[in-house]
Design a protein around this nucleic acid. Structure first.
Lengths: 209, 209
DNA sequence: GTGTCGCTTGAACGGCTGTTCAACGACGGC
DNA sequence: GCCGTCGTTGAACAGCCGTTCAAGCGACAC
């Protein structure tokens, strides 16, 4: 029976510094730049100490992911309960830093099975949360549930946010700004429609100008 | 003046094998698993030979990207000129292998400036191509150009495709299948509407069931 | 004072990395 | 027959990697 290795306490300041440094490295330089030594340098500590708190790099990646995921789930739940849930959900999904972090962790999950399982599980939980909320919300917005089922709308919001975030990271030209503006405009329109008319028969998310 | 290093001919069989092996590694194990030696092993050649054809790993990444990009631009142009351009554009964007490759190259571009410039330039060219075509197509589909400008539709198609591809790679449950099915259904609906009615006043992409 | 515990350090292990380079066989031009 | 080029090989360079481990540290219990 393998004796448990020592790991630092969950409330440690150093532990938090390691997580913060890793997050910063992920966002700014990509997952390939994360190593015991680079993280330690960014956090101003000794490299061996990283392995004291996170025996394996996999453990570190998973911890970073869990921390971000919890924050994000909370934020998303609050968004879905806000007075303008659609807009709030979009703002949550389109957060640049969170998007970049999620993107890197997804990429890292590609060759880190332990991380992949974690990411998959949480992505599914978040998706289900959204779908359940959208199932009640979409009729209020007068969206045609036949053409735009909750599963589709959830995937679309996340996909568009992911894509626009990437384009911004690539320093692409103004096209993505136009797309983001159109998204904001569309959401404005939907929120107005929701507050103007009571939920009646299902319809598509458009106006005849 | 630096003397030019020798590089292999552009038509070489070995060169093609290197590119193919790199592509496979990218899709299956992520960009971090691409190294002179791993590529050489996958291609069944000597490691030094990789650097004979691609002096730098950056050169290799850029070459892989260019090859995929050219294929993709061709395919996209053909899609936009097909009888059902919307559907064809979606199928092109949603191609799993191409999507995974693009995803990895985007992630790799994060910490490879040479690659980033290349990716940004091509992503912009592809985006412009789509936008120009959509500017003419969307009215034919009866889509409200005020709520759904071409920039938005282009970003949405690519974003949803990217996101659904990632979810499939994560082996997520059936939610993304429902979303993909809804997308196909929506496209069916749009293509039918386009062929049924002549382009009249701009309207949103929905039907009252 | 002595012992114990959590935190931290520094060094070390083997292994993989990008890149360079001299050398080699084959092959076409002359 | 000789030369130069092309594709190829194998070795070598310095550097970073994940991980382990013994040893040191302060604080706190008794």
């Amino acid at each position: 029976m393998a004796t448990a290795r020592r790991v630092g306490s969950a409330t440690s300041e150093t532990r938090a510094a390691i997580l913060a440094a890793t997050e910063q490295l992920l966002v700014e330089s990509g997952y390939a730049s994360v190593s015991s030594r680079s993280v330690a340098a960014a956090a101003g500590i000794n490299p061996g100490l990283v392995h004291y708190y996170f025996p394996t790099l996999d453990d570190l990646f998973v911890a970073v992911f869990r921390r971000g995921a919890e924050k994000n789930l909370d934020r998303m739940a609050r968004a879905l309960a806000s007075p303008t849930p659609f807009q709030a959900l979009w703002r949550t999904s389109a957060d640049p830093r969170g998007g970049a972090l999620f993107f890197e962790l997804m990429a890292a999950a590609n060759h880190r099975p332990a991380l992949r399982a974690e990411v998959a599980e949480l992505a599914e939980r978040a998706r289900r949360l959204q779908i359940e909320a959208l199932r009640e919300l979409l009729p209020q917005y007068g969206v045609d549930g036949g053409l735009f089922p909750p599963e589709f709308v959830a995937a679309a919001i996340q996909g568009i946010a992911l894509s626009l975030g990437r384009e911004e990271a690539l320093a692409m030209a103004t096209e993505h700004r136009a797309a983001a503006a159109a998204m904001e405009n569309l959401l404005d329109h939907l929120e107005q429609r929701r507050h103007a008319a009571p939920p009646r028969r299902a319809q598509g998310p458009e106006a005849r100008s």
